[in-house]
């Protein structure tokens, strides 16, 4: 422990309670004991206590907390990814770029940030359908899809999609021909995946905004295909 100092701008910081980046064994056992002893108290009270305590200690700024929550609840979401897909459908050069250098292509539309540092784009074709999971936890490409849905983070999905993807897709109403290969991709701390769904039939001439409206979050995870456009209601059938 001696000699390990964090860089600080202020020199008066004599206390030992800098954020140390190593593991305190004694702290760990005491922490575990405390956590287990309070584990059955209602979760809302436990979260409140944690937030309040960290705020009192100046480790958390509630305004910053509100701002980041607002960002992910209301601003960052699958609409971002839909724009990427719509652009790829409309512009062959962009699609090529997206498949070859997804980080640059996605960044070009402004969708960068935490959990999106290393993207891989997976193109669905008539012969190959891709679907994404994180078996170990819940890795997900936040900048293009926002926060993951509950089912994506759940044990049923994480366990079964790698073993029997067709049955999971069928639960979502997605039935692919036997002649389509299904590839399941496991996200991790290094790689995040974005599925590029097939462009649906009957979308010729649609502009990017309209195309984006057909691209759902679930189609960019790969459990569904993109929506098909409503047929134009021109007069009575």
């Amino acid at each position: 422990m001696a000699g390990q100092h964090d860089d600080h701008d202020h020199d008066d910081h004599a206390h030992h309670d800098h954020p140390h980046h190593h593991f305190h064994r004694i702290h760990s056992e005491a922490a575990d004991a405390l956590l287990m002893s309070i584990a059955d108290i209602e979760i809302s009270a436990r979260v409140k206590a944690l937030e309040e305590l960290l705020t009192l200690k100046g480790l958390v700024d509630p305004a910053a907390l509100d701002a980041v929550v607002d960002l992910y609840e209301n601003q960052i979401g699958p609409k971002n990814g839909a724009r990427v897909i719509a652009r790829a459908w409309s512009d062959p050069a962009y699609k090529k770029w997206l498949l070859e250098d997804p980080n640059a292509a996605i960044a070009d539309l402004g969708f960068t940030g935490a959990q999106g540092e290393n993207m891989v784009a997976l193109e669905n074709t008539d012969g190959v359908h891709n679907v994404v999971v994180c078996t170990l936890c819940s890795c997900y490409p936040w900048p293009v899809l926002g926060l993951p849905p509950v089912w994506y983070k759940s044990m049923p999905y994480r366990t079964r999609i790698v073993r029997d993807p067709r049955s999971v897709l069928a639960e979502f109403g997605t039935v692919l021909p036997d002649t389509t290969e299904i590839r399941v991709w496991d996200s991790n701390s290094e790689v995040r995946y974005l599925v590029v769904p097939r462009r649906p039939e009957g979308t010729q001439g649609m502009d990017e905004a309209a195309l984006a409206g057909l691209v759902t979050r679930d189609s960019m995870i790969g459990v569904t295909e993109a929506l098909t456009p409503e047929p134009a209601a021109e007069g009575a059938p």
């Binding site: 702290h27 760990s28 005491a30 405390l34 009270a45 960290l54 200690k57």
Partner: peptide, 28 residues
């Protein structure tokens, strides 16, 4: 996530189990 973050904050010495327990009890 609560378990994970709470544990890390205590392991890092940023808060102690005692003050956590006290604060939780007071809040309730």
């Amino acid at each position: 996530w609560w378990f994970a973050v709470a544990r890390l904050m205590m392991e890092k010495g940023l808060l102690t189990p005692e003050e956590f327990a006290r604060h939780l009890a007071a809040g309730r």
